[in-house]
Design a protein around this nucleic acid. Structure first.
Length: 721
DNA sequence: ATAAAGTGACTTTTT
DNA sequence: GTCACTTTAT
């Protein structure tokens, strides 16, 4: 293969190594995607393996698609039969084929995070439990964690009273799922693992079929995923995994980087290949990244090196608040774009939590600059989108209780919570699904169950039942778009949304966008549409091409690269996040997250934090992140000091080499007891003052907002008395 | 049954 | 400050 020439010796070794277990430990930017892709092509071409006998698992659908395209290009032909996708998508497909061995039918639906919490909530209610004591989200997290470790309800470890209650909820949760003919995200992995473990014939079938298995982002696999991989590889033992323990950031989702150790033990003959040379970043960026990650304990030190130049220092900036931080990001980007030093698409802005995107978006919008936002929830989480998907899901699988409960009263049609509760209870008594009962009630007077309801309720239910039956008749013959059009028309969805407001119009546009997406499923059908919709990853929503900065969480940034990267909100409590403070392992993961962010950058990194943070509406003083302390001083360019320097001399004076200018002593101008006037927060009382980094930091109690930390030179204060 | 008004949790991260 | 859920009024 011609492209082998472009590989370094380690990469070449990985691509061309003999069959058998292989563990590739790949640092950031070391070309692991390229290795994986070429390995797939190599196996097909040199070992003469039919694509049908090959499975490759990636972390996102987008990565899978790209890999498929590149492999086809390398081979110069299509790769029909190749199993390529995320763990979840791949399992979903196989489980449909093997549904006869499962407690669901092959047309099961996939419950997303929202649905899962709803089921938990329902069960908690049915058990008359206090949902304050048993928070649905937290109970669901326990159930999910159990599934990821392959614990069925009866295996759920009971060590506390709470665990006992959760185990009971888990049991009913699972029952609800099965009567709804549904699987949740975790089930896809769990059942696949169970199937392979408990049915030797199925294990043999797939273990023989997959002569070669390749896995990307191996450090973020959980127990269920590891187990199913182990079984799938049990016959041929040709399993090629690529990962980097330093980039493990999904522990909270059950990912266990110790799987790397397990792999070494279970496949003791495995060849281990290290990819250390970095082809992405400047040496400065790599040095900073290493300095940061070196603070973690329990890791194998790794040296990252590049042939690239040192490059500019990492830029550090302190801002007054998050609004100014957003403005600073936009300004910095705009300036470089205006001076043609960079293109808008060269930039990415990364943050710890999604909520941080709002101020950034506002700043981009008001500057009239387009941006790309990564986050599937943004679209698929919208009420109107969920409504329509729920309708489609119900038609695809009428037993889906969660979807039914969502659509039965949307738009309002005379069926409220009371009537729905009656329907559900009655159906439970009959041991059928609410959907079945509804279909029966559609028969009108013919139905023997109609008398169970009040005249009004019976009429409304019967009417809706007839709609459902009608849609069910067409579901196999019509393409998704036409089913959708039928629903929209029959329920008058546009009129329901259109209340004359801008919001209503926007919602309808979202429905139309969903319709556009559905129209791409003309041939593959409703099942595929619903499956794809359920399993989209955030990264999948990243639109290609558009030349605009990308806004994304640090998690979503994994596997991507950008010329220039902003990491904003470097405040203690945000990055690292407060929720991890108590947990040493969690703190190590926070640091890895920061490491992942830094190593996305090819040319420049900008770090920034705000002195004041918005928290639940009001502003609170914040602390710079502890991670700053780990960045070597000579690799760091502190914008705040530079700017002050400029202001004082009124002349632009770039930093001279490493020697910092002698710290000029600043005299305190304020002292405790002074009353001052602030442009935004009005009157306040100074209660403390200290000199720090060439500036005066004041503690002031304001009448309006309480205690604040204020930088004297920036705040434009006026002394009243 | 439904719309409007009020209450309280909530922010990690996502397949 | 926002969202989802609950209570209240129609």
């Amino acid at each position: 293969m011609e492209l082998l020439e472009k590989l370094n010796p380690q990469q070449k070794q990985a691509v061309t190594t003999d069959p058998g277990p292989v563990l590739v430990l790949a640092g950031p930017g070391s070309g692991k995607t390229r290795v994986l892709t070429q390995r797939v092509a190599y196996v097909i071409d040199r070992f003469d393996v039919h694509p049908y006998h090959l499975m490759a698992v990636t972390f996102t659908n987008k990565a899978a698609r790209e890999m498929g395209e590149r492999v086809a290009k390398l081979l110069g032909r299509q790769t029909r039969g190749l199993t390529l996708g995320t763990f979840h998508a791949t399992c979903a497909r196989i489980l449909r084929v093997e549904a006869e061995h499962l407690p669901v039918d092959s047309n099961y639906v996939i419950f997303d995070a929202d649905d899962q919490v709803k089921v938990v909530k329902q069960v908690i209610k049915d058990h008359n439990l206090d949902d304050k004591r048993y928070r649905p989200r937290s109970v669901h997290a326990s159930i999910s964690a159990a599934k990821n470790e392959l614990y069925l309800p009866e295996d759920f470890p009971i060590d506390t009273y709470r665990a006992e209650v959760v185990a009971r909820i888990y049991e009913d949760y699972q029952k609800t799922l099965l009567t709804s003919n549904a699987m949740d995200f975790d089930d896809l992995l769990l059942w696949m693992a169970i199937l392979l473990e408990d049915y030797p014939s199925i294990r043999e079938k797939y273990a023989r079929r997959f002569e070669h298995i390749l896995v990307d982002e191996f450090q973020d696999t959980n127990i269920a995923q590891y187990t199913l991989l182990k079984h799938l590889a049990s016959y041929h033992r040709n399993i090629f995994v690529v990962g980097d323990a330093d980039q493990s950031i999904y522990r909270w989702r059950g990912a266990d980087y110790r799987n790397v150790m397990r792999f070494k033990k279970d496949f003791s003959e495995a060849e281990v290949i290290l990819l250390e040379q970095n082809y992405r970043s400047t040496q400065t960026i790599l040095d900073v990244a290493m300095a940061v990650i070196d603070q973690n304990t329990h890791r194998t030190p790794k040296r990252l090196f590049t042939e690239r130049e040192a490059g500019p220092k990492v830029h550090v900036k302190e801002l007054f608040d998050e609004r100014e931080q957003a403005q600073y990001v936009v300004d910095t980007i705009a300036r470089q774009v205006a001076s043609k030093k960079a293109k808008p698409g060269d930039f990415a802005v990364m943050y710890r939590i999604n909520a941080q995107s709002r101020l950034l978006e506002e700043a981009f919008l008001s500057a009239n600059l387009p941006y790309k936002l990564v986050g599937a929830q943004r679209f698929y989480g919208r009420r109107e989108v969920k409504d329509i998907i729920a309708y489609l899901r119900l038609i695809f699988n009428p037993h889906d209780e969660i979807s039914l409960s969502r659509v039965i009263g949307t738009p309002p049609r005379g069926i409220g919570t009371k009537t729905y509760a009656q329907l559900r209870t009655h159906a439970q008594k009959l041991n059928i699904s609410s959907g079945d009962l509804l279909a029966d009630l559609a028969k009108g007077k013919e139905s023997e169950h109609l008398s169970q309801f009040s005249t009004r309720a019976a009429k409304a239910l019967s009417r809706f039942g007839r709609l459902l039956v009608k849609w069910l008749e067409d579901k196999d013959t019509l393409p998704p778009v036409e089913i959708m059009d039928q629903i929209l028309e029959d329920v008058g969805y546009q009129d329901y949304l259109d209340d004359g407001s801008e919001e209503g119009r926007e919602r309808w546009e979202n429905v139309m966008e969903l319709r556009r997406l559905a129209s791409e499923y003309q041939t593959v059908g409703l099942q595929q549409f619903l499956e794809d919709v359920a399993l989209v990853s955030d990264q999948d929503t990243l639109e290609e091409g558009a030349d605009a900065p990308t806004l994304l969480t640090l998690h979503a940034a994994k596997g991507l690269e950008f010329s220039q990267v902003f990491i904003v909100g470097l405040n203690d409590g945000v990055l690292p996040h407060q929720r991890s403070f108590e947990d040493p392992e969690g703190m190590e993961e926070e640091r890895r997250l920061f490491y992942v962010g830094i190593t996305r950058a090819k040319d420049r990194v900008y770090l920034s934090h705000a002195l004041n943070r918005y928290v639940y509406g009001h502003t609170e003083p914040g602390q710079p992140s502890r991670y700053y302390a780990d960045i070597p001083a000579d690799l760091r360019d502190d914008g705040r000091l530079a700017r002050q320097q400029r202001r004082k001399s009124q002349v632009f004076r770039p930093w001279k080499k490493a020697s910092p200018p002698p710290a000029k002593k600043v005299e305190a101008q304020y002292k405790a007891g002074m009353k001052i006037q602030h442009p935004k927060w009005d009157k306040g009382l100074v209660i403390g003052s200290k000199i720090q980094d060439d500036d005066e930091i004041l503690d002031i109690v304001f009448d309006t907002v309480g205690l604040k930390k204020v930088i004297a030179s920036l705040a434009n204060l006026e002394v009243i008395e």
